[in-house]
């Protein structure tokens, strides 16, 4: 009787023949061709155009666009904003993840939904609501301008708008990972006599460092490229409140297309670089954390 039952290796080979290569060669070829065509036209072509157009007028135009005063100022503003946004979101992400994963309290789902909210809000609306709060007829605008603080049409407004669109990118992987890890290691450290701060610095932080870098990377990439939200609050003052993407828009609208693409190619190179880093970091994260974040 037992000879009738195939061995498990044989079963698997049998199954693979049906499941792995189950689709006929014609269907296979068709699906592969469609994939090649669709992704080439939809993604590869626009990506190549950026670099082709950047050098369309020769490398002189390319270089002079990159080292022009306005470009350098836009670059320095973008770097400043990113340098402020990423740490702020990292501190928030750690604090929110600590509260949400180490404790039970009522209203947790509300807090989680608030963290997810920016994904549902158009970037333009994110910028617009800041105008409602900090504008000259807004709630805080008049008070702050009395104090001499300018939020709109200057760096603080751009930072706030960028924070609005990026903070979930750091908080969500941290929450997912710390939820996975539970609270046992922290409880052990505490019961062995470590203080709260020491527990956090020597147990929690090393455990979540890759998720923190990962979120920080996504956040930095988006801060570099954020357009809609920043466009509403920046006021588009050339050489002063134009970030890199806004500078690209200004050049393009001035019909300085090659210069616009030169600056755009710099942004595109940066985003390709972050993609490579992202693939490297994803290997260091558990599957479920990674896959939950990939679709954001």
């Amino acid at each position: 009787m037992s000879e009738d039952r195939p061995s498990s290796a044989c079963l698997q080979a049998h199954a693979r023949r049906y499941a792995g290569a189950g689709d006929g060669p014609v269907l296979r070829l068709l699906l592969i061709l469609i994939t090649w065509l669709f992704l080439s036209i939809a993604v590869l072509l626009p990506l190549c155009v950026v670099f082709v157009e950047a050098f369309a007028r020769g490398s002189d135009v390319f270089l002079s666009a990159l080292v022009s005063r306005e470009t350098l100022q836009a670059l320095s503003l973008t770097l400043t904003v990113t340098a402020l946004v990423v740490p702020a979101n990292m501190i928030f992400g750690l604090s929110a993840a600590w509260a949400l994963t180490k404790f039970e309290f009522p209203g947790k789902p509300v807090l989680l939904s608030l963290i997810d909210l920016p994904f549902a809000v158009s970037p333009v609306i994110a910028g617009y609501v800041l105008v409602l709060v900090f504008g000259s007829s807004g709630w805080l605008g008049p008070v702050l301008s009395e104090l001499g603080v300018k939020v709109l049409f200057s760096t603080p407004g751009i930072v706030l708008a960028t924070i609005f669109v990026t903070f979930p990118m750091v908080a969500r992987p941290l929450i997912a990972l710390m939820e996975d890890q539970g609270r046992e290691e922290e409880e052990t450290a505490l019961s062995l006599g470590a203080g709260g701060l020491r527990t956090f610095l020597t147990v929690t932080l090393p455990n979540v460092r890759w998720a923190l870098f990962y979120g920080g990377l996504l956040c930095a990439a988006r801060s570099f490229g954020e357009f809609g939200a920043v466009s509403v609050v920046s006021g588009h003052i050339r050489g002063l409140t134009n970030t890199m993407p806004l500078h690209v828009e200004a050049l393009y609208n001035d019909n300085r297309v090659a210069a616009a693409f030169a600056v755009a190619s710099l942004l595109a190179s940066f985003s390709l670089f972050t993609l490579i880093l992202k693939f490297v970091l994803e290997r260091k994260l558990p599957d479920d954390v990674r896959e939950a974040e990939r679709v954001r």
Binding site: V50, G225, F227, L275
Partner: peptide, 24 residues
């Protein structure tokens, strides 16, 4: 390569994608 390309629309700044599509 195609698998990696899928992430490009997430990573590429929207304004960059915008001018590339417009000029195409």
């Amino acid at each position: 390569m195609l698998d990696a390309l899928v992430d490009v629309p997430f990573a590429l700044p929207t304004a960059v994608a915008g001018i590339a599509l417009a000029s195409l």
